[in-house]
């Protein structure tokens, strides 16, 4: 008998895998079967999907919202330029 019924813990792994890879059909079936009967996991899956989408925008938003420095400091640039000049010899 094929183990079709996945646990919630299994779903936390399979649902994450579904974000990164294409699931083999058996796992996909198992996941949908579980989601059909488990509201917790349906919510969980939608929330990690949301996090995935948020991370996709993260670089742009951090810059846009001024949460990371936009520029390399003048000193750092100068230091790198000097090192490059040294290498040129």
């Amino acid at each position: 008998m094929i183990k079709m019924m996945l646990s919630c813990k299994d779903i936390s792994e399979v649902a994450s895998l579904a974000i990164d890879e294409t699931l083999p059909w058996r796992k996909r079936m198992g996941m949908h079967l579980h989601l059909f009967i488990c509201k917790h996991c349906r919510t969980y899956v939608s929330q990690i999907g949301f996090i995935h989408r948020a991370l996709h925008h993260r670089s742009d938003e951090l810059v846009h919202m001024g949460l990371v420095e936009r520029t390399l400091s003048v000193e750092a640039k100068e230091k790198i330029r000097e090192k490059l000049e040294q290498q040129k010899g």
């Binding site: 670089s59 951090l62 810059v63 390399l72 750092a76 640039k77 790198i80 330029r81 490059l84």
Partner: peptide, 19 residues
Amino acid sequence: DPSTWPDRYGDSLYRHALV
């Protein structure tokens, strides 16, 4: 000229690494 790299690309490379 490599000595122009820090000014031309430094900021965008830095942001890439920083995030």
